[in-house]
Amino acid sequence: MATFDAVSNSDAAQSFAGRKKGVRPSDVLFHVVMTIYAMLFFLPLLWMAMSSFKTNGQIFQSPFALPTSWDWSVFATAWADGGIGQYAVNSFIVTAVSMVAILGLGSMAAFAFSRMKFRGSGLLLTLFTLGLLLPIQSYFIAQNSLFEYLHLKDTRWALIIPYTAMGLPLAIWLLKAYLDSLPKELFEAARIDGAGDLRIYWSVVLPLVRSGMATVAIFSALAAWNEFLLALLYIQNDELKTIPVGLLAFSTKYITDYHLLFAALTIVTIPMIVIYVLFHRRIAQGLTEGSLK
């Protein structure tokens, strides 16, 4: 397993401290190239946000021009009439419930796997580890039939259950690694004080694996927020759709109402970008750590 420490900028800056000051041509060239490259990311987003204020004609005729008027009501229309607000609420519920379930169930299981001896633990752990490797295609067909049979489709559980199940292997794997690295004296001391397993879980394990939990939380929250395939297949009721599927429905419904579409795109992207910029270090670390397992 590879884990990386987030490196603060001051660390990185320090290693350059010995270098001489002054502007060098290569530095200028570097920043010019990098800025142009960064534009590749900001331009489409800027174009998207700007086009929200334009009419269809302006979008067609002068794609680069600034909008001539700033009509903010288009966002309210997309949010309320277009249903983006409802999609956001659905995404929020599904993401938050799955994330809490993953953290709760995952940390309990990780605690047992790391600190308890019991028959079958090796087998169970192997099964969970297998879950890290299984692609979604290996189970979604039968899962779909199963959920049909259980009448779970078109309910929020149809997303919460699989998202939780998909997040558990990673959570258990990561949190177990965190717990394994803790000195066993911590647990023994608590036990000598007469604490039961539940007590130890609550007051020793949970506080100690907070950093691991943050990684798991970020990774599973983003995975659930962005998941598309299952949401497309399991949810047909417009009132329960999450953002990815809802936005797709929105985009086919208003396919020719371009500024409304761009407004919807802007609504769903800008808050994510703001959250990311605020917590970028943690989020980048959580995502990379989660992917590298």
Binding site: A109, F113, L127, S138, Y139, I161, L168, P169
Partner: peptide, 20 residues
Amino acid sequence: FVLPAFLVFAVAILLPVLAT
């Protein structure tokens, strides 16, 4: 401690893998 996680995992993933 393990059962809740395993139940969810088994029902949503392991069983469907075998069924597929």
